[in-house]
Simulated assay, not measured.
Amino acid sequence: MEQSHECPMTTKDVSLQELREKLAEFASVRGWDQFHSPRNLLLALVGEVGELSEIFQWKGEVARGLPNWSSDDKEHLEEEISDVLLYLVRLADVCGLDLGQAALTKIIKNAQKYPVKHQKY
Protein backbone atom coordinates (compact mmCIF):
# COMPACT_ATOMS: atom_id res chain seq x y z
CA MET A 1 0.00 0.00 0.00
CA GLU A 2 1.34 3.41 -0.96
CA GLN A 3 1.85 5.82 1.91
CA SER A 4 0.02 9.12 1.61
CA HIS A 5 2.12 12.24 2.00
CA GLU A 6 -0.86 14.50 2.58
CA CYS A 7 -1.65 15.84 6.03
CA PRO A 8 -4.90 14.47 7.46
CA MET A 9 -7.35 16.92 8.99
CA THR A 10 -7.40 16.49 12.76
CA THR A 11 -8.72 18.35 15.75
CA LYS A 12 -6.12 17.21 18.28
CA ASP A 13 -3.34 19.41 19.59
CA VAL A 14 -0.30 19.23 17.36
CA SER A 15 3.23 19.34 18.74
CA LEU A 16 6.10 21.27 17.25
CA GLN A 17 7.81 17.91 16.75
CA GLU A 18 4.89 16.68 14.63
CA LEU A 19 4.99 19.85 12.55
CA ARG A 20 8.75 19.53 12.15
CA GLU A 21 8.41 15.95 10.93
CA LYS A 22 5.54 16.75 8.54
CA LEU A 23 7.45 19.70 7.08
CA ALA A 24 10.65 17.70 6.67
CA GLU A 25 8.75 14.97 4.85
CA PHE A 26 6.82 17.52 2.76
CA ALA A 27 10.05 19.17 1.61
CA SER A 28 11.90 15.90 1.10
CA VAL A 29 9.34 14.19 -1.16
CA ARG A 30 9.17 17.32 -3.32
CA GLY A 31 12.95 17.70 -3.58
CA TRP A 32 12.84 21.06 -1.84
CA ASP A 33 15.59 20.38 0.71
CA GLN A 34 18.10 21.84 -1.74
CA PHE A 35 16.29 25.18 -1.50
CA HIS A 36 15.73 25.17 2.25
CA SER A 37 18.91 26.85 3.40
CA PRO A 38 18.63 28.92 6.58
CA ARG A 39 18.94 32.12 4.53
CA ASN A 40 16.21 31.14 2.06
CA LEU A 41 13.88 30.03 4.83
CA LEU A 42 14.45 33.26 6.73
CA LEU A 43 13.70 35.36 3.66
CA ALA A 44 10.52 33.34 3.03
CA LEU A 45 9.56 33.81 6.69
CA VAL A 46 10.04 37.58 6.43
CA GLY A 47 7.85 37.61 3.32
CA GLU A 48 5.11 35.72 5.16
CA VAL A 49 5.32 38.11 8.13
CA GLY A 50 4.83 40.91 5.61
CA GLU A 51 1.71 39.21 4.25
CA LEU A 52 0.43 38.76 7.81
CA SER A 53 1.09 42.42 8.54
CA GLU A 54 -0.89 43.51 5.49
CA ILE A 55 -4.03 41.96 6.97
CA PHE A 56 -3.86 44.36 9.93
CA GLN A 57 -2.29 47.32 8.15
CA TRP A 58 -5.40 49.48 7.72
CA LYS A 59 -7.70 48.02 10.36
CA GLY A 60 -6.56 50.10 13.33
CA GLU A 61 -6.93 48.42 16.70
CA VAL A 62 -8.71 45.08 16.56
CA ALA A 63 -10.77 43.57 19.37
CA ARG A 64 -9.57 40.38 20.96
CA GLY A 65 -11.19 37.36 19.33
CA LEU A 66 -11.88 39.37 16.15
CA PRO A 67 -15.65 39.63 16.77
CA ASN A 68 -16.25 41.99 13.83
CA TRP A 69 -14.29 40.00 11.27
CA SER A 70 -15.91 37.88 8.56
CA SER A 71 -15.22 34.16 8.39
CA ASP A 72 -13.27 34.79 5.16
CA ASP A 73 -11.07 37.39 6.91
CA LYS A 74 -10.45 35.00 9.80
CA GLU A 75 -9.60 32.18 7.40
CA HIS A 76 -7.12 34.44 5.57
CA LEU A 77 -5.52 35.39 8.90
CA GLU A 78 -5.33 31.74 9.92
CA GLU A 79 -3.56 30.86 6.68
CA GLU A 80 -0.99 33.64 7.00
CA ILE A 81 -0.28 32.91 10.67
CA SER A 82 0.16 29.25 9.72
CA ASP A 83 2.61 30.17 6.98
CA VAL A 84 4.69 32.13 9.50
CA LEU A 85 4.63 29.24 11.99
CA LEU A 86 5.54 26.65 9.38
CA TYR A 87 8.51 28.61 8.05
CA LEU A 88 9.69 29.27 11.61
CA VAL A 89 9.48 25.57 12.52
CA ARG A 90 11.28 24.61 9.30
CA LEU A 91 13.99 27.22 9.87
CA ALA A 92 14.64 25.97 13.39
CA ASP A 93 14.81 22.38 12.14
CA VAL A 94 17.23 23.17 9.32
CA CYS A 95 19.40 25.04 11.84
CA GLY A 96 19.36 22.02 14.16
CA LEU A 97 17.50 23.81 16.94
CA ASP A 98 14.80 22.50 19.26
CA LEU A 99 12.28 25.31 18.89
CA GLY A 100 10.01 24.14 21.70
CA GLN A 101 12.85 23.90 24.21
CA ALA A 102 14.32 27.21 23.05
CA ALA A 103 10.93 28.89 23.55
CA LEU A 104 10.56 27.46 27.05
CA THR A 105 14.09 28.57 27.93
CA LYS A 106 13.30 32.06 26.62
CA ILE A 107 10.15 32.26 28.77
CA ILE A 108 12.27 31.46 31.84
CA LYS A 109 14.83 34.12 30.86
CA ASN A 110 12.05 36.67 30.32
CA ALA A 111 10.55 35.83 33.72
CA GLN A 112 13.91 36.56 35.32
CA LYS A 113 14.39 39.74 33.30
CA TYR A 114 10.86 41.00 33.96
CA PRO A 115 9.84 39.79 37.42
CA VAL A 116 6.22 40.27 38.47
CA LYS A 117 7.12 42.72 41.23
CA HIS A 118 8.24 45.30 38.62
CA GLN A 119 5.00 45.31 36.68
CA LYS A 120 2.84 48.42 36.98
CA TYR A 121 -0.63 48.59 35.51
Results as ranks from 00 to 15, higher is better:
L77W: 00
A92I: 11
G31S: 13
A63G: 03
V49H: 00
L43H: 02
D33A: 14
K22I: 09
I108Y: 05
W32Y: 10
K113N: 04
K59I: 03
N68A: 09
E61G: 02
E61S: 03
V84P: 03
S70P: 05
K120G: 02
H36M: 10
G60Q: 09
V29H: 04
Q112L: 09
M9E: 15
R90A: 06
T11Q: 14
K109G: 03
I107K: 06
Y114F: 12
L19I: 09
H5S: 15
P8D: 08
A103Y: 12
L43C: 12
L88A: 13
Q112M: 04
G50F: 00
L19Y: 01
R64F: 01
M9A: 07
I81N: 01
Y87G: 01
A102N: 14
F35P: 00
T105H: 11
E80M: 07
I108T: 08
L52C: 05
D13N: 14
Y87A: 02
E21R: 06
N110Q: 11
G47C: 03
E78K: 14
E78P: 02
V29A: 01
L85H: 11
E25G: 05
D73G: 11
G96K: 04
N110P: 02
V84Y: 03
H5G: 13
H5V: 06
V29N: 01
L77K: 06
C95T: 14
R64N: 10
S53Y: 07
R39G: 04
G96S: 04
L86S: 06
K59L: 03
K117G: 15
K113G: 12
N40Q: 11
G60S: 03
